[in-house]
Amino acid sequence: MAAAAAPPQRSPTGLLALFAQVSDPRKRRGTRHRLPVLLTLATCAVLAGARSFTAVAEWAADAGQAVWSALGIVRVPDESTFRRVFALLDADALDTILGARAAAATTPAEGTRRRIAVDGKTLRGSRDGDTPGRHLLAAIDQHHAVVLAQRAVEAKTNEIPELKALLGTLDLAGTVVTADALHTQRDTASWLVDRGAHYLLVAKANQPGLSAQLAALPWTKVPTRARTCDRGHGRIETRIVKATEVRAGIDFPRALQAVQITRRRAVADRPAQTETVHAITSLPTHQASPTLLADLARGHWTIENRLHWVRDVAYDEDHHRARTGNTPQVMASLRNLAITSLRLTGTTNITQALRHHARRPERPLATIMNLNC
Score class of each variant (00 low, 15 high):
A3L: 14
A6H: 10
P7V: 07
R10V: 12
S11R: 15
P12Q: 03
G14T: 09
A20S: 14
R26F: 04
R28I: 11
R28Y: 08
R29P: 09
L38K: 05
A42V: 02
T43S: 15
C44E: 15
A45W: 05
A55F: 03
V56G: 06
A61F: 00
G64N: 02
V67S: 05
G72W: 01
R75Q: 10
S80E: 13
F82V: 03
R84Y: 03
F86Y: 03
A87L: 07
L94N: 02
D95S: 03
A100T: 09
R101G: 06
A103M: 05
T112R: 11
R115G: 12
R115K: 08
V118E: 01
K121A: 07
G129E: 15
P132T: 02
L136A: 12
L136G: 07
L137V: 02
A139E: 08
I140P: 01
V146L: 00
L148F: 00
Q150T: 03
N158M: 11
A173K: 11
A173D: 14
T184R: 06
V202C: 12
A205Q: 15
A205K: 14
N206P: 14
N206G: 14
N206I: 09
A212I: 11
A216K: 07
V222D: 11
R225L: 11
R225G: 13
T228D: 15
T228F: 13
G234S: 03
I240Q: 14
I240N: 12
I240R: 14
V246D: 07
G249R: 00
G249M: 02
R254H: 12
V259Q: 11
R263W: 10
D269Y: 09
Q273C: 14
E275A: 15
H286T: 14
T291C: 13
A294P: 09
D295V: 00
A297E: 10
R298L: 03
H300D: 13
E304R: 05
E304G: 10
N305I: 10
L307K: 01
L307W: 00
W309E: 08
V313H: 05
A314V: 01
D316L: 03
H319Y: 07
R321E: 12
T327P: 13
V330K: 01
M331D: 06
L334Q: 05
A338G: 05
A338I: 00
T347R: 00
T348K: 03
R355C: 09
H356C: 01
H356Q: 07
R359T: 14
P361C: 04
N370I: 09
L371P: 07
